[in-house]
Write a protein that binds this DNA or RNA. Structure first.
Length: 306
RNA sequence: GCCGCGAUAGCUCAGGUAGUUAGAGCACAGCUCUGAAAAAGCUGGGGUGAUCAGUGCAAGUCUGAUUCGCGGCA
């Protein structure tokens, strides 16, 4: 009985700037919960304004997990995320509270709600660097030879996919395993915040202006690149890898683009990103798309009663 | 007013010597995802070629006129 009662997880997802944070606090307060973030950028220390990380004050005493847990110099991965998040979720449940998985990184959410099994082959950055020198065509030929099954479905134009597949094959000397799912003991309610494209564009714009105020975001990136204490900062290249605000502010600070180009690009790319998020979410038919708070409460009440 | 230059996709532009269904980048739409996912990739819809006339078997491409825009000279 207690297993059933303690296996619940509420996911709050939505496009960037759709208002996940606000909703999560309201719900976590009402239902006595804790928040586990599902955001691939908010895991990093020092990336606050640009990633839209919740502030201490905004938390209103609700405990938050998986924020500031990674060094931005190193690459954090879904696999790490999956393990840490599962642990946090279980702990919250043990304490008799409701875990709220909140974020916009579809892959991270999927790793929890579908319990996908990711091959236990650690990224080997040295090997990847070598493989990166090869053309897509050559990479694909290698895969085809070593793992014809994987070659059938892989995207032969995507170097990342090709290199990872090769990495698995070369390390394990075996073909890439079939996609597996852990049978999850979680009982999940997925709530999606729905916004019209026009509304979302406005929200992104408003948020961007806020982030730019008093040079706050510019200073954040400057600080990441050049920390005050004298320790080494993040390279421009690394900063650009993070995308969106970090990519374009870094380009601006290198004088690669003008201030206006920077703001235009952040806006446009955020809109594109929001669309990509939606393509991802659309595939998950379990998501209950909500428009207002009242509706949400009904859903949650019903879910928690069962 | 005169001279020159230009007018091709929503935007910026490519398109020697005229020859089958006019291209690119961006934008737009849709999509993919097995340890980088705000990443990395894929597909697609769009054009009465400024307008009118002429020459040619054939005109975005040559000729003329008109309209509009840009630069120069008075």
């Amino acid at each position: 009985m207690s297993i059933i009662k303690n296996s619940k997880l509420i996911v709050i997802l939505g496009q960037t700037a759709s208002g996940k944070t606000d909703l999560s606090i309201k719900l976590a307060k009402k239902y006595i919960g804790e928040v586990v973030s599902a955001d691939s950028r908010q895991v990093y220390k020092g990336m606050d304004i640009g990633s839209g990380k919740i502030t201490k004050k905004e938390m209103q005493g609700i405990p938050h997990h998986l924020l500031d847990i990674a060094n931005p110099k190193r690459k954090f991965t879904v696999n790490q995320y999956q393990k840490l998040a599962m642990k946090d979720i279980k702990n919250i449940q043990k304490r008799g509270k409701i875990p709220f998985l909140v974020g916009g990184t579809g892959f991270y959410i999927q790793s929890i709600v579908d319990g996908i099994v990711i091959p236990e082959v650690k990224p080997d950055w040295k090997m990847r660097k070598k493989l990166e020198k090869l053309s897509n065509e050559k990479l694909f030929k290698k895969i085809k030879k070593l793992d014809p099954e994987r070659a059938k479905t892989i995207d032969k134009n995507n170097p990342r996919r090709l290199i990872r597949a090769l990495e698995i094959v070369l390390k394990t000397k075996k073909p890439v395993p079939e996609l597996g799912h852990q049978t999850s003991q979680l009982s999940v309610l997925e709530i999606g915040i729905k916004k019209s494209p026009e509304e979302l564009k406005k929200l992104i714009k408003k948020r961007l202006l806020k982030r730019l105020k008093n040079e706050a975001m510019i200073n954040e990136v400057k600080k990441l690149h050049n920390p005050p204490a004298g320790e080494s900062g993040l390279s421009w290249k690394r900063l650009e890898e993070f995308g969106l605000e970090y990519r374009f502010v870094a380009q601006y600070l290198q004088n690669k683009i003008t201030y206006k180009e920077m703001t235009d690009k952040i806006q446009k790319e955020s809109e594109h990103f929001a669309k990509r998020q939606m393509t991802w979410f659309k595939k998950d038919k379990r998501i209950k798309w909500i428009i207002n708070f009242k509706e949400t409460i009904c859903l949650v009440d019903k879910f928690l009663l069962n």
